[in-house]
Design a protein around this nucleic acid. Structure first.
Lengths: 144, 144
DNA sequence: TTCCTTGCAAACGATTTGCATTGGA
DNA sequence: TCCAATGCAAATCGTTTGCAAGGAA
């Protein structure tokens, strides 16, 4: 039982939701790879052990209780990753060729700078900012 | 014939693509609203005058020739907006309640700062950055 | 006139849901 | 035990495509 599993188990029981085999498999799998994964990608990662329909339900529940965060990418695919309180605040490198998404963590100084930009945008707008994400599009190492 | 229509007409004929009624309606409609629009939203904006299947084909063609840019948002919806050479470089305010997306243009100073952050991230990575987009999530004026 | 474009309907792929069965606390 | 969670299959939803008819250059 890792620290991550303990954190997640607590969060689940706080919401009256069980920590089942499928849910454990999904979070473990997501913790072991870099970048968000789609239902189909997880299905493959898990060796087909969890049917797609169950996988979708698992992802929906884990998102509802705040364990997973969705990322909407090219071709209408939704990918999920561990929420920021588990994975840390980060941003994304999106490959315009293959569609892969990698995480990138900013240095504290750069993150502060970015937050200042966000504040400057929303200070005078009738928009209450709750979070932000910098998406950097380009060509990844494998595609260039 | 507006300046926008002239720019678009030129780009289309450069690609051997005709400037038809449906294509004119789509770009005119997108130019008159704030933020990217989905096929369904455009279908409604155009009063149903253009069938959905034609709308999808129109959007695909306009994206191919670089007149429209796609934006992938909540619920696996793809929304389109005028490309940056027509609309200017900008970022997005995404409402987590209603899903609406509004454009925000950064001041030159803030944009420079943001670009410095992007460079700092990709300078040591095997990733060739081509563009960036700052997504600010929160609650829009209508929902708060 | 000549292709490009459109409209309709059927096809598709990702995701959701009804229902009977299984399993975790 | 007892209700939540699962698995299967069928349904849905956004989007794409084949084909015959219409329209811009």
């Amino acid at each position: 039982m890792t620290t991550l599993e303990r954190q997640i188990g607590t969060r689940l029981s706080d919401h009256g939701v069980r920590f089942t085999r499928a849910r454990r498999a999904v979070v473990t799998s997501l913790a072991s790879v870099d970048g968000p994964q789609s239902a189909a990608e997880l299905h493959k990662l898990l060796g087909g052990g969890v049917p797609l329909s169950s996988l979708y339900r698992t992802l929906a529940v884990l998102e509802e209780v705040g364990i997973l965060a969705p990322h909407h990418g090219t071709r209408g695919l939704t990918r999920y990753e561990l929420a920021e309180w588990l994975n840390g605040h980060h941003h994304h490198l999106v490959c315009v060729d293959c569609g892969a998404v990698d995480d990138v963590h900013l240095s504290p100084g750069m993150e502060d700078t970015l937050e200042a930009v966000v504040r400057s945008v929303t200070s005078d707008a009738s928009f209450e900012a709750a979070g932000h994400s910098l998406e950097i599009e380009g060509r990844c190492g494998r595609c260039s």
